[in-house]
């Protein structure tokens, strides 16, 4: 991986932290129940939140396989005469994707929850009466 690529990746991650801090500063009051957010924002936030929630779930599930995978890795390393990584390093490798998934999940989740309830479309009965009322 080149230095430029690494710099770009870490800058993008830092920008996500900045966005989370901006949300942290902006969160000042209770949601008033009114929905002003457009549908595009609501849909993209919802889908992104679902995708990242799945990612968080998979990252958590991987923790359950750590004892089995570590034993396998240790046996293979012993057979090949190589040193095995310590359990803490092995666990850290499983922990890093979980951290990233949690950070990525937070932004769309907060945005979706802050969009408020979707406004109900006008029913067939209401539309003509509203038109008559306006006349």
């Amino acid at each position: 991986m080149g230095v430029a690529r690494l710099f770009l990746d870490e800058t993008a991650n830092a920008a996500t932290i900045l966005l989370l801090l901006a949300i942290f500063r902006r969160a000042t009051g209770e949601h008033d129940g009114q929905s002003l957010a457009p549908r595009f924002l609501r849909v993209t936030a919802q889908v992104a939140a679902i995708v990242f929630a799945v990612w968080v779930g998979i990252s958590l599930l991987r923790f359950g396989f750590i004892p089995y995978l570590y034993t396998e890795l240790r046996d293979i390393a012993i057979q090949n005469g190589q040193s095995t990584p310590t359990l803490s390093i092995f666990v850290l490798d499983f922990f890093k994707p979980l951290l990233m998934a949690l950070g990525s999940f937070a932004v769309p989740c907060i945005v979706f929850k802050s969009c408020g309830p979707e406004p109900d479309p006008p029913t067939v009965d209401e539309a003509p009466s509203a038109a008559v009322g306006s006349v």
Binding site: I23, T28, L36, A37, S114
Partner: peptide
Amino acid sequence: RSGVALHISV
């Protein structure tokens, strides 16, 4: 485009 419309709860 529409972040201004958000009311983020504490």
